[in-house]
Amino acid sequence: MHARTWMTPISLGIFLLLSIVLTTAIGASGFSLLDLDTATVTMLLFDVRLPRVLAALLVGAGLAVAGTAMQGLFKNSMADPYIIGTSSGGALGAALSIVFFMGSFLPVFAFVGATASTVLVYIISRRNGRVAVETLLLSGVAVSMFLSAFLSFIMYMAGNSLHQIMFWLMGGFWNISWNDVWLGLLILPGCLVLLLYARDLNVISIGEEDAIHLGVDVEMMKIVLLLISSFITGIAVSVAGSIGFIGLITPHVMRILVGPDHRLLIPSAMMAGAALLMWADTLVRILPTEIPVGIVTSLFGAPFFIYLLRSRTRT
């Protein structure tokens, strides 16, 4: 049985606040903070580490919430925020920016790429004013492949920029400024809107026809869910690149812990995703050589995904 109370999200909230302090304090600058003068410490903590921690928090929260919404909409706990082409669209946008504009306006390019590909997938799937989620899923795969072909071509021709594109593709927070945090703050209202639709998400996760019977304008809901999710994901991708598995695993684990009610699930996933990505990024920071955080999340995420697959097929 699930412990269907607010205990889990409240505990997660406390853990998250502690994590902000702890992850900001932990670092790899090689010095003990006490040895440095106050000005340097202040600079290190508030201009280097804190924005990085907060960006990881926002991106982690956003990806987890968008993943929760996608899993609810697709009635499938194997769905993630990138399932309808968001990440490949964002990646293509970022690659275009890197190759042709030397990386300027990269977040804008990534955001436009991510949301444009979602809109494209939606338009392709729409027929007689209705969108079948199965078609949406398949169109997402097809558009992703199509965009990936362009991305591969650009990478092949990229020359010196290849390393930069690769680093971006794997996702990370190595070069975060306060500006990225301000941009990332847009994720919060997105999450709030999805939280307002939590009960509709519950109903739609039972089945579309059931949802219509229960008074949900399902086609309208799909537009809202896709639009908000791809907005959140687009922002997340433009801040930190396409970081994998956070949006897949967090909702799944939280559903096991708090149950499928999105009124509890969304806030729980939001805080868990935030904490998870903050700690993953901290791990990356203290490694001898800094690597993209996406490598860490995938390294731990992929085996977990396989575990989920196997435990699902057993039942």
Partner: peptide
């Protein structure tokens, strides 16, 4: 409905 296949553990 005739048949409802609920995926999630409500």
């Amino acid at each position: 409905p005739q048949e409802t296949a609920v995926t999630f553990d409500f």
